[in-house]
Design a protein around this nucleic acid. Sequence first.
DNA 1: AGATCCTCATGGAACGTTCCAATAGGTTTC
DNA 2: GAAACCTATTGGAACGTTCCATGAGGATCT
Lengths: 337, 337
Amino acid sequence: MKQPTIHDVAERAGVSKSLVSLVMREPDRVSDASRQAVLEAAAELGYRPNAVARSLVQRRTRVIGVVLSDLHNPFFADVADGIEEAATLRGYRALLSSGFLDAKRERAALEMMLELRVDGLIMLGSMMKVAKIEKVATSLPVTLLGRHTTSKVVDSVGVDDSAGARAAVDHLVALGHERIAHISAGEAAGAPRRQSGYKKAMRRHGLEDQIRSVKADFTERGGARAMTEILASGDLPTAVFAPNDFAAVGAMEVIDSAGLDIPGDVSLVGYDNLGLAALPRIALTTIGQPRADLGRTAVRLVLERLDEDRKTARHEVAPPKLVVRATTGPPRHDARG
Amino acid sequence: MKQPTIHDVAERAGVSKSLVSLVMREPDRVSDASRQAVLEAAAELGYRPNAVARSLVQRRTRVIGVVLSDLHNPFFADVADGIEEAATLRGYRALLSSGFLDAKRERAALEMMLELRVDGLIMLGSMMKVAKIEKVATSLPVTLLGRHTTSKVVDSVGVDDSAGARAAVDHLVALGHERIAHISAGEAAGAPRRQSGYKKAMRRHGLEDQIRSVKADFTERGGARAMTEILASGDLPTAVFAPNDFAAVGAMEVIDSAGLDIPGDVSLVGYDNLGLAALPRIALTTIGQPRADLGRTAVRLVLERLDEDRKTARHEVAPPKLVVRATTGPPRHDARG
DNA sequence: AGATCCTCATGGAACGTTCCAATAGGTTTC
DNA sequence: GAAACCTATTGGAACGTTCCATGAGGATCT
C-alpha cells in the first residue's frame, strides 16, 4: 500500500535522489546510463511523483480550480470542456467542484480549492456575492464566467445577452412578426439583459406598443406557467421569445397541448442552444453561445495573470449566435389583422 | 499575493507555531487567552491552512477523487450529487475530473488524481481496462460505478443491468411483442450486461429465434446509425430496445423521419431515465436507476476500506425500475400489411 | 603543465504543516 | 515539603519533493 518515493528509486538505481528528480523533470540533462538506470528502477517500483510534495516546494500546483454552481446544467459541461482543453494545452490541469446551486456549498467548494492552493480559479455561474469573490481575488487570479461584473479585481467572460435578444427579435421581425411576447426570468443570471435587449430591439423596430413581458424563471415549469398565462389572456401573440431553452420547452408543451401549431400559430425562440434544442422532435430556434470558447477564454484570462503578470481586470464579451430550427416561421396572414 | 503561514500567525500572536497548529485543529485543548490571541492574529492576516503541507506530513488528503467519463451525461451529475453529499458527511471532499469519453484523457485524469494522492477513487462509467484499474487499486481504494466487475481488488456498485434489460423485454412481451431488436453499445460500461440480459429474457419467453442485436454505442448518433441499419434491412421489428436514452433518441429520429409511427409501427425503450426522456414530445419508456444512491454507496465502499480496513472486494447491486411512457404500445396485428 | 571549461552528479536547505517528546510551572497528595 | 501529577506550551524531526551551490573528473586551450 505504501507508495515508493524518490529515495527508494535512487537507492535501487544507485544514484542520488537529486538525479532521480532531474531524470523526471529534464531527462536530457542526464547521461544515458544514469537515465536508463533510473527509469528502470522507477518502472520496477511503480514510482509516481508525489504532486503534494512538489507543490509544497514549488509553491504552486499547476491546477486551475473550477467551481461550478450546477453540475446538471449542460451549459457548464461544454464550458468545462473548453477549460480542460485550454488548461491542458498550457500545462495546467483543471479540477472541478460543484456548488450544487447552494451558496453555502459553493462557499465550501471554494474554500477547499483555496486550501488546496490551486493556482487560479474559474467560477461558473457563481451564486456568491461579488464582494466575497473580490476578497478571494486578492490572493489568486479569479475569473467569473457567465455573470456580469465591472469589478476592478475580478476578470469576467460572458456573452452579450442584449445582442442575443436583439438577434432573436430581428429574426422574428424579418419573418413578418410584430406581436412578439417575451417570457422573462426575473433577476436570474443573464435574464435582465435578455429582457432589456428584447425591449430595445422592439423599440428599434417601431414596435414599442407590442412589448409584452410575462415574468417566469429559467425552468420548464416556469415557462409552462407563463405560456398558460399568455393563452388565458385570450390575446395570442404570433411569436414568443423565452429566456432560455428550458422555459421554451415548457412553453412548447403548453402550446402543443392547447392544440396549436408551432410555428403555424405561434413561433417560439429559446436561448442557450442546449442539446435538447437540437433534438429533431424539439427543433427549437434558439440563441447559441460559444460555450467551449467561453471556457478557453476564462483559462486565458487566468493564465495572463499567472504567467504574464497582468494586473488590471479584463471583461471579455463574446457574441451570441442565432440558430434557426423549426419552431419559427412566418405568422399566419389572417392573424395579423 | 503571498499567503501568510502558520509562522506569521505565531509571530503575531506571540506564541509558537505548534500552538497555532493546535488551535486550528483542537481549539479546546488551548487556554482561552492563547486561543483568542491566535484566532485574532489569524483573522487579521487572513490565514488559511495550507492543505498541501498538511497532506504531505499526514500522508493523506481527505479527498476522494472522482473520475467521470463524461461530464455531459446527466446520469453522472446525479451520481456526483450523491457522492458529494456522502463524502461531506464523513469529513471528506470530492474532487472531479472528466475523461471526456476518451480513454487517453481518462487515463490522464486518473494519473493526476494519483499524483495528487487522493485517498480514494471513484470511477464513473470508466472506459479503461479493468486490469489497469486493478493495478491502480493496489495503492488506494477504488470503486467502479456503473460498470460490472468480479475483481478481487476493485469494488463496484451498479444497477442490475441484466434485470433492467429483462424488465424492458418483459414489458414489451406483455404488450404482445415478439420481434424485439436490441441496439447494443458494445463493450462500453454496462452495455454487455444489458445485451446479455436482453438475450436471456428473450430466451425465457421462447423467443430465441427473434434475438437480433445491432452494435452501436451510447450516443445519439450511434443509435441513429443502428436504427438506419435496421430499417435498411427491410425486416422491421415491432419493438427496439436501446442501450441508453441517448441512443434511443437517435433511433427515434430515424424512425420519425422514415414516416413511421412510435409506438404504432415500432415501440421503443431506452435506458437511464434521463431528464430528456420525460419531455412530453419525447416521452420515452425507459429503465430508471437510483442515481444518487449509487453515489452514496460508492463513497461508503471507499470509506470502508479507508477507515474500517476492509480488505476483500464488494460488489453492490441496486435494482432498476421500469418507467412507462408513450413510446411503447401493442404491436400492429397485421405486422405491416 | 597548468588553467579553464565542460558535463554529470551530489548533498543539503527549504517548502508549511503535524506530531511527539520534553519542559515549565502550578496544584494536589501524603 | 517532597513526590506525583496536572495543564499549557514548545522545539525539532519528519513528510517527499525541488533547487542551488558545489564538486569530481575529463577534455581543451594556451
